[in-house]
Simulated scan of single mutants.
Amino acid sequence: MENFEKSKNTAIVAYLTIIGCVIAIFMNQEENRSDFGSFHIRQALGLFLSFFLLGYFVGYANSWTVTSAFYLFYFILWVYGFSGALQGQKRELPLVGKLFQNTFKSL
């Protein structure tokens, strides 16, 4: 049970900024690797990287409505993933979760 608590802590840290995601990757090294922690690291890393990548282009839209919708969409995805980590559940993010799992499967 203690091992699950460690992997749950790793999953929670992964959602705390991009720096937290990098820290979680180091927390989930070979001897401490867990499926649960790896799952949430892939979800969080994909979420942060896509946020920065798409946010760069959304910034050029120069529209309050587009920008607000973008931030709201990513905030909802973040809350969904973070709450799954807190509850100890492996739930893929809607729309993009499977893509993140396949893209970052080496983590």
Rank of each mutant, 00 (worst) to 15 (best):
S106F: 15
A61Y: 09
F51V: 04
V58R: 08
Y74L: 11
W78T: 04
F57Y: 14
S68Y: 05
F52P: 00
A85K: 04
V96D: 00
V22P: 04
G88E: 06
I41Y: 12
S83L: 09
A69D: 04
Y15Q: 02
M1D: 14
G46N: 07
T103P: 00
E5F: 07
L77K: 13
E92S: 14
G97M: 05
F4Q: 05
D35T: 10
N9K: 11
K8E: 08
A11S: 12
I25C: 13
T67G: 09
L107W: 12
Q43D: 04
G37P: 02
F70T: 03
N62D: 15
F75E: 01
A14D: 10
Q101W: 02
N28A: 09
Y74G: 03
E30N: 07
S106D: 09
I41Q: 11
P94C: 09
I12T: 07
S38F: 06
V96Y: 09
F52V: 08
N3C: 02
T10A: 05
A69H: 02
Y60Q: 04
T17H: 11
I18F: 15
L49K: 02
M1K: 08
F52S: 03
T65R: 05
Q29D: 15
F51R: 03
S38L: 01
C21G: 05
L95S: 11
V22E: 00
F104E: 01
N28E: 10
G97F: 04
E5R: 07
S83F: 02
K105T: 12
T65G: 02
S106V: 12
S7V: 06
Y74R: 13
K90Q: 15
G88R: 02
F4A: 04
V22Q: 06
D35Q: 10
L47Q: 01
F36E: 00
R42Q: 13
K8V: 04
V13P: 05
L47T: 02
I19Y: 13
V13H: 08
W78E: 06
K90N: 13
A24L: 12
V66P: 03
K8T: 05
F100P: 05
F100Y: 15
L93A: 03
V79Q: 09
G59I: 09
E5P: 06
S7R: 06
I12C: 08
T103K: 03
H40Y: 10
G46T: 04
A61I: 07
F36H: 08
L107V: 15
F57M: 07
K98R: 13
I41R: 14
F75L: 08
